[in-house]
Amino acid sequence: MRILIWHVRGAWTTAFVHGRHDYLLPAGPDRGPDGQGRSGICEWPAAARQVAIEELADEEVDVVVLQRPHEVELAEKWLGGRRPGRDVPAVYLEHDTPAGGIPDTPHPMAGGGVPIVHVTGFNDLVWDCAGTPTIVIEHGIVDPGRRYTGDIERAGMVVNDPVRRGRSVGADLLPALAAGVGADVFGVRVEQLPAHRGLRTYESPTQPDLHDHLPRRRVYVHLNRWTSLGISLIEAMHLGMPVVALATAETPLAVPHEAGYVTTRRDEIVPAVRHLMKDPDVAEEAGLIGRRHARRRYGLDRFLDEWDDVLRTVVAGTAP
């Protein structure tokens, strides 16, 4: 199967392109958001092939995986007039929680004739898709292996664009965490964070570098209030890190209590991290429990098999 897909979310796409198909990734001369091509920081197989935008009209495409509403128009233009959902089979992948009023936010693709895949059951629950067929396919991870050492007695986090995203990713909770236990934040545009005592930032490491350096931190902390389930959290659990997380959205189902600490109380975050920091044996055992859970629930084979089932039905015209 030849699948047209945009490089929108590097971590999710890394798992997806490890499947059994050919993946066509539009590449523009400026490598902008609509034409990033292959990832420069993730490890992707050769089957993930970038194609110049001007060459897409000559490509045979079996199915389009859409991730942003405007990609419908882009695909029709770039595929020589073939419109997703009409002339070529398509499915829409929703990564995010709604940004508007809950639970009444209408999904932008509702009623568009293209089935919607949600990455969590919570997302499927809170979006108003107005009767459009929906499917839930939870995340899958290319297992990086257990690498946890915890030899750096600090909290580790991965947050992209924390200043712009603000409270949704818990940026306002960072100063207390950094002052209380020390926090190392990895990700895109983390250098924009204001300086705080105990805070260190590491700008946009490659995925292999992140998997080497993150698990040296004693505890992984996930402060997201209102986002979809972060793949970085699942990766941290695969790495064997104990977790302290906010009990919001899908997180309570993703992180068993034995894997660390899940809470809705801001005054419990720093004490929970301190507890794991002062007892490395407890931290290591929590990380092992989290890794076992993450491998069962977010394994790559299950993820790819479920996507194959959906793509086959969409191409065959038998999707719900």
Rank of each mutant, 00 (worst) to 15 (best):
V262N: 10
Y92L: 06
V221S: 12
H196A: 12
G145W: 00
A178C: 15
V51K: 09
T149W: 14
V142S: 13
G28E: 06
A90F: 08
R146Y: 10
P103Q: 07
Q67R: 07
L174V: 12
W78N: 03
G180Y: 13
V117D: 10
R31W: 08
P144Y: 02
T264W: 05
W6R: 01
P256A: 03
S204I: 02
Q192Y: 13
C42R: 12
T318H: 11
N160A: 11
A15I: 00
P89T: 04
L74I: 00
G260N: 12
R167V: 12
D30M: 12
P215Y: 12
P271W: 11
G37S: 01
P33R: 03
Q207W: 07
P98F: 00
L214F: 11
I137Q: 13
E73M: 06
A294K: 03
H18N: 05
F186D: 07
T120F: 07
H238T: 06
A130Q: 03
G187C: 13
R82I: 00
G111P: 15
I135Q: 04
R312S: 08
E191K: 09
E284S: 15
A90V: 03
L66V: 08
H18Y: 08
G121Y: 04
S39G: 04
L229A: 02
V126W: 04
F16G: 08
T120L: 14
E76T: 01
A15W: 00
V51N: 14
V163R: 10
R291M: 04
R82H: 03
R302E: 14
E55S: 11
F16C: 01
L300G: 04
M109G: 09
R295S: 05
T248Y: 02
H7S: 05
L253I: 00
Y298D: 05
E76N: 10
R146F: 14
V117S: 07
A46T: 15
L239S: 14
Q192G: 09
A236M: 10
R266D: 01
R164P: 07
G112S: 07
T201V: 11
I102A: 12
L276K: 09
D104M: 01
D104V: 12
L233W: 06
I3S: 10
A249H: 14
D279G: 09
L25P: 09
M241E: 05
G113F: 02
I5K: 04
W44H: 02
E191C: 15
L199T: 09
V270T: 07
H18L: 04
A272T: 01
V270H: 13
L300P: 01
H95C: 03
V310P: 11
D309G: 14
